[in-house]
Nucleic acid binder design. Structure first.
Lengths: 220, 220, 220, 220
DNA sequence: CATGAATGAGTATTCATTCAT
DNA sequence: CATGAATGAATACTCATTCAT
């Protein structure tokens, strides 16, 4: 195909060749994205049981068979979806150090997490749902969730340790024990909010959580 | 059949009638319990997808049709299971006040929760699994989980408020904001531990959490 | 693409034109052969169910769509394959008369058949498989197999008749009745050997068969 | 049905338990037989590819799902069918010794086989078809076919050996080498006749085969 | 009361085929 | 000419549910 284009366009062949290929590839990539987005939407709304390959195809505006055609199996589709969702989650899991103090950095992360609860993306919700279902142990996502947790804990412990070296954090604090409590506090809030967003004042809960974090870093 | 026989045997009807009925009712109750226990086991091990009415019957040592016969539909069986699991969970959700101080009461509850992670019951695991799947909103369990959370938060706030009236808890603390942070901390730890029990030191994390709770109750 | 290049390079058109076309035709013929060979391989290994148009293309080292592009439909591909396999089989079905005596000619043919069992070609195996499946009557190959049998019988009868005219074969033998027995003996041995090559001594069986054939030609 | 009868016949209550069960079991057994018969019919006519679980159910006069319900998978259904067909085939494969002479016994068997070609049962045709398809090596029937062949060869060798001990068969004949030739002759005739019943005179071919067999047993 | 036979709807998956590039 | 994107029909298999015994 690139040859055809080059044959036609003549001169600027060097630039044209790629687009021709990209057209097919683009079509494919675009359709794949659409399918994954559709799958995320469906999972976010109906759980992974509510997702069928046929529905994914139709939700994305294609035929019933396309999702199967691309991903081969439902498991593969879910795997791809998890990959995408995990990448999105990972991006925020261990953010680059901002250079602010430890307390500020941790509290900023906490606010970011809860903000994600208020304006969730389909992919984010799908990740939560899949992660939750993975608790049954049936899924391969279990490992991914565990890794994400571990990564966030490691980042937390590092921030706390740095705060100690900077003299901001009380020396008696054990960064390694601190981390799971911190991660737990956030996860627990997120899960509560996900189950019943209106049942309590999320803003106040975040503020209270920040109070806890600052106390845990500095008080004895 | 045994009823038929006993009905027919007539004679000592006055004496026989009640026991016979109780025997029937007991048998029924016993079989139902066995079915629910089997369902809990299956869900705990294979997730809610792995549960079929036929398998429940066989897992319980009965025929393939019995679960349908008793519960009528799969939805009804799951509802009954949720009910049972919820009852078990509720029992520990808002424990009777022990009379100890607020900090001690909350920390004791925290230790109890994490203990539950270490020695889980089938019903408990089934509840976690169903609750997790309920996040998708597809299930009717969502409401139950939310109610459980709410109840635990209410209990927490009450304990904190009582602590303030007793002078043990710092007056500046807002019990209503405190509660979701407390519940979140526990839920988050439980979920982390459920996903990867060996990934971190649960005991140390619990100790650290107690430190946080005591600080949040008393420090400024 | 190389053709395009050649088309474009123009210049020596008179000389280039024909070769270019021949190259095209050759390429096509070569690709078709490769596709048919790939199909034969797949059928020989996995039965006709294991053959898909896409797999044939890939097995041959081309794209998934090429087999469809060339043959139009699966039926057409199988037809072409059968044609090719039949041609190969026919070549040995009624070999040119060697000029040896009838007994020697028939025994030589028998040895050749059994040799084919030991070193089968993909095309040969595909023919056996397709022919076997054709027994159900679903395929159009049934006729081809029958024709092949008929042709071999005709050749056999002719060899026997010639043997009678040469005085080598006993006059009482009916060539037309002799033929199906001869063909049956060979087919039956081939099939037995194909089903379980190690279950009996093929060499001894061939020797015994030769004894039968010589006796049937000469003894009373 | 039998229950109805017995219900009507009254009296013999002690006999009641079993029949009730038998009715269910009978229903099942009858339906299973009907399904297998339907499957045999379909395979005989359309080959194993033409057999669908749904079609089997409908052909048998039941629902589309019943075959799956009973046999669990298509492979299992085919296995059951093979079992049944093999049992039928085995029954004639190594018949009880008739006490007649070796030649008579073998020729009688040959006539029986060819007779089976003229009046085939669905199960018999299904066996031939499945056996033929098994040549591709994909099926598990390959082993069954091989075993059937081996058994027939063993019976043949035994008959020949006994004939030698009786002085009817020439001592120089090797029973073990004789057997595959004999079995091959029959199989080959059967296959030729199956492919094209009208293409040659089966009766004459059988007579000629008998001539071969008698010669092979007695002539030098 | 209890069993299990029978049904049929739903779903994943395969694959020939059509069509755009 | 060649690739591969997209479709849709066919089919194996699962399972809740109904019904006969």
């Amino acid at each position: 195909m690139s040859t055809h284009d080059e044959d036609r366009t003549g001169g600027a062949g060097a630039l044209r060749g790629a687009p021709a290929r990209r057209t097919q590839a683009e079509r494919r990539a675009r359709a794949e994205s659409a399918l994954i987005a559709a799958a995320a939407r469906l999972i976010a709304e109906h759980g992974s049981t509510g997702v069928t390959l046929a529905r994914v195809g139709e939700e994305a505006g294609f035929s019933r068979g396309l999702a199967t055609h691309y991903f081969g199996s439902k498991a593969a589709l879910l795997a791809r979806l998890q990959e995408a969702a995990l990448a999105e989650a990972m991006a925020s899991a261990a953010p680059a150090r901002s250079g602010a103090g430890a307390a500020e950095e941790l509290c900023g992360f906490a606010r970011g997490c809860l903000e994600g609860v208020r304006n969730p993306t389909d992919l984010g919700r799908a990740f939560v749902v899949l992660g939750a279902e993975a608790l049954a142990g049936a899924s391969e996502l279990t490992g991914a969730v565990a890794e994400l947790d571990a990564r966030t804990r490691a980042w937390t412990a590092e921030v706390v340790g740095q705060g100690q070296r900077d003299g901001e954090v009380r020396p008696g604090v054990d960064p390694v024990a601190f981390a799971p409590a911190f991660v737990g506090l956030l996860k627990g809030l997120v899960v509560q909010a996900a189950a019943a967003p209106e049942a309590f004042d999320v803003g106040a809960a975040v503020a209270e959580s920040e109070r806890w974090i600052r106390l845990a870093l500095t008080a004895g």
